[in-house]
């Protein structure tokens, strides 16, 4: 939803992995922080990397939970309704026991609330953490899924709620999103004001950009493209954008020294050619923000 205030929620996404979402998110956030407060949110909760680049002290850790049913043997009459009710196969009747597969649970509460014996009370299940990392004007919220969890969506939704509760005063909110175009990408970007799709000028990049464009259109979110490693590969991505009226907001040149500095976990704003791309991108985003709020 567009916010009533002048908050601007920017999602940085891509279909293909490794195109430069983190590179762009961390440097853009760092650029804005030179003159304004900015919130960077790492929603790639399966593999969060922003904290490698944004160095600061962890000021707070918010444990994150999803609600899952817990079987109460004393109350259960083994009627088996819960097993039928669950559409995700998270409950199984094993002989005289109901086993809960917490990984599969979507926290819909149906089994718990429809159980006539109230034998499946909901309890908190720890799925990950949100760390708050402060680096002057930049606040990084890092969502991190526990490695034994499989479903990132509940945690991503939690992080969004947490942002709205505690950090809504930040005008700039940048959401570094997971790759792909499935439910986790939708949960990350679906309520943002604008989606930046980062791609690379290769057939793989183009194929996955098209998928990401489909996702953005499905969610009815405005979007634009940033081409990373520009100058390598071919011109097909540019032609696709031009033919489909998709705005290209920036081109990051292919430069082995960028790759090398990225590999060390460094920000790149002191590199002139890179900084000018980020600065011009920021100006374009400012225009978009102002026109959306106007």
């Amino acid at each position: 939803m567009a916010q009533t205030s002048n908050v601007f929620k920017l999602a940085v996404a891509s279909g293909k992995g490794g195109t430069g979402k983190t590179l762009l998110s961390t440097n853009l956030a760092s650029f804005v922080s030179e003159f304004d407060d900015v919130l960077l949110v790492d929603l790639d909760v399966e593999e969060p990397n922003d904290s490698i680049f944004v160095k600061g002290l962890v000021s707070d850790v918010h444990p994150q939970y999803k609600m899952v049913p817990q079987w109460d043997v004393a109350r259960c009459d083994l009627c088996g309704d819960c097993v039928d009710i669950c559409n995700f196969n998270a409950l199984v009747n094993v002989g005289k026991m109901i086993v809960v597969y917490e990984n599969l649970c979507h926290s819909c509460h149906a089994c718990s609330e429809l159980c006539h014996k109230k034998a499946l009370p909901m309890k908190k299940h720890h799925v990950g953490d949100v760390s708050v990392i402060k680096s002057q004007n930049l606040t990084l919220l890092e969502g991190r899924l526990n490695v034994n969890e499989e479903q990132p969506v509940a945690l991503i939704n939690n992080v969004h709620s947490l942002v709205n509760q505690n950090w809504s005063k930040y005008k700039y909110q940048i959401f570094d999103s997971p790759p792909g175009t499935s439910c986790s990408m939708v949960a990350s970007t679906g309520k943002c004001d604008y989606i930046l799709l980062v791609t690379e000028p290769t057939p793989f990049g183009l194929n996955d950009l098209k998928l990401a464009v489909d996702a953005a259109k499905l969610m009815k979110r405005p979007f634009g493209v940033v081409i990373n490693k520009y100058g390598s590969g071919n011109k097909d991505v540019e032609e696709y954008c031009r033919d489909n009226g998709i705005e290209v907001l920036g081109k990051i040149p292919f430069d082995i020294s960028i790759a090398e500095r990225y590999s060390k976990g460094e920000l790149l704003l002191d590199k002139h050619c890179f900084r000018s791309v980020v600065s011009s991108l920021y100006n374009k985003l400012e225009n978009i923000r102002i026109s959306q709020n106007g």
Partner: peptide
């Protein structure tokens, strides 16, 4: 690949 990000992510997927 030899980046800090990739090493971090490698450790997590190794767990799985």
């Amino acid at each position: 690949e030899p980046t800090m990000s990739a090493l971090h992510d490698l450790k997590r997927v190794l767990f799985v």
